[in-house]
Design a binder for these strands. Structure first.
Lengths: 227, 227
DNA sequence: GTCTATACTTCGATAGAC
DNA sequence: GTCTATCGAAGTATAGAC
């Protein structure tokens, strides 16, 4: 019983990605998704049941793909700081292919996960899990300084996602001459962010040849309770 | 002709802040805002004219207050890296007083500014302006390494906003046992982020006594075209 | 300034023919 | 599997009495 190779479901997901990323869950219109997908609204309901199911299917799909993209980076035989640079590049590359990804992520955080069922939540959690694992390993083998893995996660992921999602508003600011960040292209930003994060997470002692020192001690005393 | 000192407009703004931050512009319901404010829906329209005007008034109000909070930090007579640590603290403190702020910010970035008129856009632009000024000054006097001011802006603001806005979803993740970040309280996070950003933006040469060195040169050669 | 009642529109979802 | 037509709920906004 081969899969009914008509043309709809993937096209619907693509259209839904655009619509949901541009307008959010509440602002998205089922009619518009159907029209953008070139299918009938009833067709959409036939395949996905409801607006909510469609949204969840989209989130599972996009976050699973994102996490899958990061897995080989986490598994590579390179130091943690190099993995982190690659994660940043990978998010940027992933966004170049799926431009709607950053806005979806911002919106889901802002929505507090109210539309998510357990399966979707789990798919969504894989991204911080993978990145956190990279950091934890780097901290353990002394390649990175001691930080909470989730601090490192937010320090690298939030800027790149925020920046990429912010392109439309930067254009508005430029059009109104309220700011001009045209020189800050995604390429430049990725490059600077990689260096920024590398410096931020480097062990505090000068610069060993990436070999294992046990702990990186902080200069500033009264921090660090536990991770 | 004294201002009609009835009780409504501020209460409406407060209620609107909650509703818009929780649901976004499209998801917010005028009826709910009115009910939360304890006023009639017609009263709301009497004071603000439309859902859109109310939303814009809210954004102008909250972003102006945020920028006003940062101004004295930018003007203080302390090194740029200390100002940056204070900016991070200030955003966290501001959010403690106005819990809806981070979600509003995320949503507005994701929405690409589609609901904004020029005045509101200008109010919104003041926050990156002030922070960018701090960084530019720090780069100029050698207190910070050479980065694009907006790279620094995103590196400090995106993580704190993202983290603070993400509290609801972290609770969901914890409830489903998909992650437990309970040890990462806002206090710990702010502390770690301050140190992270300080390291990320410190001049690359060892550590002068905060006095003026002209330029901080990067180790890595082929970066840095212009800022 | 404040409230009730309601006009007008849009949206998610389905019925039912093919 | 696909389409047209439409229902019923919910939403923004206003009219008009007080």
């Amino acid at each position: 019983m081969p899969r009914p190779a008509t043309v709809s479901p993937e096209q619907i997901l693509d259209a839904a990605a655009l619509e949901f990323s541009e307008r959010g869950y509440a602002g998205a219109r089922v009619d518009r998704i159907a029209r953008r997908a070139g299918v009938n609204k009833a067709m959409l309901y036939y395949h996905f049941g409801s607006k909510q199911s469609l949204y969840r299917a989209l989130l599972r799909w996009i976050f699973s793909r994102a996490a899958d993209r990061l897995l080989p980076i986490a598994a590579a035989a390179v130091p943690a700081d190099e993995k982190i640079a690659r994660v940043i590049s990978a998010i940027a590359a992933f966004t170049a292919e799926h431009a709607f990804f950053p806005a979806i992520m911002l919106r889901e955080v802002a929505d507090g996960g109210v539309h998510l069922d357990p399966d979707t939540l789990q798919a969504l959690a894989r991204v911080p899990m993978v990145v956190g694992g990279v950091v934890r390993q780097g901290v353990a083998d002394g390649t990175l300084r001691r930080v909470h893995p989730m601090t490192a996660y937010f320090s690298m992921l939030a800027p790149i996602v925020f920046f990429l999602a912010g392109e439309p508003i930067r254009k508005q600011l430029a059009a109104r001459r309220l700011a001009n960040m045209a020189s800050l292209t995604p390429e430049v930003f990725v490059d600077e962010l990689q260096q920024t994060v590398r410096l931020a997470l480097a062990p505090s002692a000068p610069r060993a040849s990436a070999a294992g020192r046990r702990h990186a001690h902080n200069r500033s005393s009264l921090r660090r309770k536990r991770l």
